Simulated assay, not measured.
Amino acid sequence: MKNNTIILLMISVVVLAAVVYTMTGGESPEDYIEKIEAERERQFKFIRFNYESPLTEEQKQSFTKLNFYPIDPEYKVKARLLPIEEKKMREVPLTDGTKEKYLEHSWAEFELNGKTQRLLLLQALDEPDKRNFFLAFADETSAVETYGGGRYINARQDGKNSITIDFNLAYNPYCAYNPDYGCPLPPKENLLDIPIPVGEKNYGK
């Protein structure tokens, strides 16, 4: 009986490892976590030291860390890329009351929390690489644990009809640190009715 239990446990561990391996795009779990942590360190150094940082010099003096949720590979999803046939320009409102124009390019459709989710991918008019997209979203953590104006992901097409969206890499816009900046707000299509408890938390929380 004990041997059977041990065998079942070993099988479960192997299956779980295989699932995590698939979710992390063929990387080992350790390599995936190391990659995310390295990106977080890069973000911190940029915000703390770079001259283009949104922080004022006074803020930089007391700035010691960025706040993140724990890394969860389940929130790295492979999405179906559904191009919009009749692409239109959209004037996206900014937090300072102005607007910026983006191209409505495609939908990213994926499964998360047992439901099909869909997000609108926008593209900057001056984007030189047509595989890169701007993804702004808000979710049920917004204005609670994360910035009320939403978070961003730099999304890049990685297949003919697919794109990987890693919510562990969700980051705050500049206006989360300094209200003097004007930042694009998520389009209404990207207001998720589920929590996304990964990525960057609100500044100062």
Rank of each mutant, 00 (worst) to 15 (best):
M1S: 12
M1N: 10
K2W: 09
N3E: 14
I6S: 12
L9F: 08
V13G: 07
V13I: 10
V15C: 11
L16N: 12
Y21N: 11
Y21Q: 11
Y21F: 13
T22F: 12
T22C: 11
I33M: 12
I36M: 04
E39C: 07
Q43Y: 15
F46D: 05
F49W: 14
N50M: 09
P54N: 05
T56C: 04
Q59I: 08
S62E: 12
L66M: 08
D72Y: 00
D72Q: 02
Y75L: 00
Y75V: 00
K76N: 14
V77A: 05
E91W: 15
L94D: 13
E104Y: 05
E109L: 05
E109T: 10
F110G: 00
L112Y: 01
G114N: 02
G114L: 03
L120E: 01
L120T: 02
L121M: 08
P128W: 12
P128G: 10
R131T: 15
L135R: 06
D139K: 06
E140C: 13
A143L: 09
Y152P: 03
Y152A: 05
Q157C: 09
D158W: 07
K160N: 08
N161E: 14
P173G: 03
C175K: 02
A176K: 03
A176Q: 02
Y177S: 01
P179G: 08
D180G: 11
L185D: 06
L185G: 05
L185R: 15
L185A: 06
P195Q: 08
G199R: 01
E200S: 06
G204E: 06
K205Y: 13
